[in-house]
Amino acid sequence: MELTEKIMYEASYTKDVSFEGIFWMGVKTTGIFCRPTCTARKPKFENVEFFFSTKEAILKGYRPCKVCRPLESLDATPQYIKELLKEISDDPTLKLKDYDLVQRGLEPATIRRWFLKHHGITFHAFQRMSKLNTAFKKLRQGESVTEVAYDMGYDSLSGFNEGFKNIFGVSPKNTPMEKVIDLKRIETMLGTMIACADEHGICLLEFSDRKALPTELKSIAEYFKANIIQGENPHFITLEEELKEYFEGTRTRFSVPLSPVGTDFQKQVWKVLQEIPYGTTRTYQEQADILGNRKSVRAVANANGLNKISIIIPCHRVIGSNGHLTGYGGGIWRKQKLLELEKAILF
C-alpha cells in the first residue's frame, strides 16, 4: 500500500488514530506541524506537506503544535507520576495526603485525574491498594495476619480485615489459597505498555490504549483464578532490560520466560510466531502451512489476534497475502514502526 499525500490528508481530516506515529503534517500558512489526530482546524490540501519523522519537520523550519504536542510520547507517564509510583513501591506503608503533594509542588486535582484515567481509581485509593497488595504477598508467604497488619501500619486488626476484604473479596486468613498476578506499567518509545507476570513468566504485554486490554486482564484473572495487583515481579526486571535493548536495536531475540494464557491451538500458533526471524514477515497462509493445515488460515488469524504478549510473541511480523499491513491490537502505526525498527519496511 503506497502512503500517498491524499491518503495522509484524508487520515488527518478524519483524525484516524491508526496513522499516529506514521506521519506528521506541516501547515505552510502557520509554520507548525501536527499529529494526524490533531483537533485544530484542518487547512486546505494545498497548504500542507507531510513528514515521516518529527526531525524532518523541525529541519524544514516547522514548530510543534501546542494543541496536539507532536514531540510528546502518546500516553507517556509524566516524570512526577513516575517518582510517586517509585516512592509508593519502595515504601507501601506511606500515606501521602493532598498536603504532602502540595509540599512537593504538585496539584492534587491533577494527580487525581491522572490516576482515575490510567488506573480507574484516585491516587489515595491507589495508595491503599498498593499497601494491601503488599500485605497480600506477605500473607501468601506465610506471615501471620497480625504481623502483616501492624507491619503495614494499620492501627487495628479490624481495620486491616475490613480494608482487605473490600479489595480482594476474601478475609486475610483465606489469602494463602489465592494466586497473585503482578501488574506494572512500562514506558517504551511507542507508548506505555502494561505487563503482567506470575511466578512462571510474563503472561501479558500490551499497549495501555488497546481497547481489548480490560477483557484480556479479566480472562487472565479467570484462567489462573488469581487476583491481578500492581506490584513488582522478578520477571519484570528481565523484561524491561530486554525491551530497552530491543527498542535500541541491539536485541533480536527475547529470553524472558513466558506464561501465556490460551488454548493448546493458540499456543501452537504463538510458538510458530516466535519462530519468525527478526526482520522478516510471514503471511497467515504461511503460518497455516507450517502448522500443517492449509485451511486453518482464519483460525490462525484469530489466534494471532488473541495474542496477549505483544512484541515478544511477534504477531506484528504477520501480514496479508497481498503484502499489506493487517489489523494489529496496538494500532497499525505501531505495527509499521516495529517493522521499520526490524528493517522489514512495507510502506
Rank of each mutant, 00 (worst) to 15 (best):
A40Q: 11
P70V: 02
G329S: 12
Q336Y: 14
Y150H: 15
N133T: 12
R334C: 08
E20F: 01
K55D: 11
D155N: 13
I111Q: 02
P43K: 06
T263N: 07
V145G: 01
W114G: 04
S18C: 01
P172A: 05
A149Y: 10
P36S: 06
E83V: 10
E20R: 13
K131A: 09
E286T: 07
K337M: 13
G249Y: 10
T326D: 07
T215V: 10
S156Y: 04
G159Y: 03
I181C: 03
E199A: 07
Y13S: 10
V256H: 09
R140D: 07
G21D: 02
Y13F: 11
F247T: 09
K244A: 14
C34T: 14
G26W: 01
I81K: 07
D289I: 14
L213C: 05
G169M: 05
V48L: 03
A149P: 12
V145P: 00
I32A: 02
I202N: 03
G153M: 08
R294L: 12
T252N: 12
I111V: 15
A299H: 08
V148A: 05
R113Q: 13
T238L: 14
E72F: 06
G31C: 06
E206H: 04
R41M: 09
A221R: 13
K184H: 04
Q79E: 14
A226S: 15
Y328N: 08
K343H: 14
G61H: 07
E216I: 12
I237S: 14
K308S: 13
I186P: 00
F236D: 08
T192I: 00
R112Y: 10
I313G: 01
E240F: 05
K244F: 14
P314T: 10
D198M: 00
E216Y: 11
V256K: 06
V261S: 04
I194D: 00
K137A: 12
L59Q: 13
E87D: 12
S219H: 12
R185A: 04
G120Y: 07
K225S: 14
R104K: 15
S53P: 06
E240P: 03
D90Y: 05
F50W: 06
G21Q: 01
K131Y: 01
M152H: 06
I111S: 01
K44A: 12
K15S: 09
L183Y: 04
F19Q: 01
L338I: 08
W24K: 02
A344D: 02
E240N: 12
A344Y: 05
Y246S: 06
A135Q: 04
L3G: 02
Y284F: 13
K211Q: 11
K6Q: 14
E49K: 07
H118R: 15
M189D: 10
D90V: 05
K66T: 11
V269R: 02
A109Y: 04
L217F: 03
